[in-house]
Amino acid sequence: MSITVALTLTSFAAALVIGTVVAAFRVSPVAPLRAAGAAWVEVLRNIPLSVLMLGFYFGFTKIDIRYGEFATAVIVLSAYTSSFVAETVRAGINSVARGQAEAARSIGLTFPQSLRVVVLPQAMRTVVAPLGSVFIALIKNSSLAGLIAVVELTDMADRISFDTARPIPAFLGAAVGYLLLALPSGAVVGLLERRAAIKR
C-alpha cells in the first residue's frame, strides 16, 4: 500500500509539472512548440499503459536506457498521466476568457508570464475537479507497475492470493485498499474545489 501511495504521489507531482508545461506548449504562439505538445499528448495517451510500461522497461534497455523497476514505473506513470493532465489544463486555459490573456499581455507581460500569473491560476479553478479524476485514475493505473515487478497493491494481492491459494479475498482486499486511497482523494478534491471557488 505504501508503495502504491509513493508511486501515485511521486508520479502525480511530476505529471502535474510536465502536463502543465505541455499544456502551455499546446497554446503557445510558437508553432513548433504547439506541435511538440500535441505529439507528446497524442503518443502517450493513445498507447495502452501496459505497453508503455513493458516497452519502456524492456524495450529501452535495447538502446541502453535503463532504470530500476520503481524508477521506470514512476517515469512511465508520470509521462502517461501528464498527457491527461495536459489536456485537462489546456481545456482549463481555454475556459479562461480571452480578454484575460490580452489584458495581461497589454500591460507588458510576456506570454509565459501571462500564462503563469494570470491564466493558469484562473484555469486551475475549473481544472481541480477533472484533475481529481486524473489522480484517481492514476491510483488505479499504478497497479500496472506490478507488470515490471514493483510490489504495489495489486501485486501484493497477487502474491497473497498465491500464498493462500485464495485469490478472491486477496483481490477484495486490494479493492478495499484502492477505495481507501481513492475516497479520501475525492474528499480532498471537493475541499480544494470549494477553497478555489471562494475567491471568485
Binding site: 513493458l54 524492456f58 534497455t61 535495447k62 535503463r66 523497476e69 507488470l147 515490471i148 515487478a149 502474491r159
Partner: peptide, 18 residues
Amino acid sequence: VLLFDGYDECKEALVDER
C-alpha cells in the same frame, strides 16, 4: 527476487542483464 507475471519477462530481464 524479482517477480513478473510470466517467465517470458524473466527471460527478457536475464538477456537484458537486469
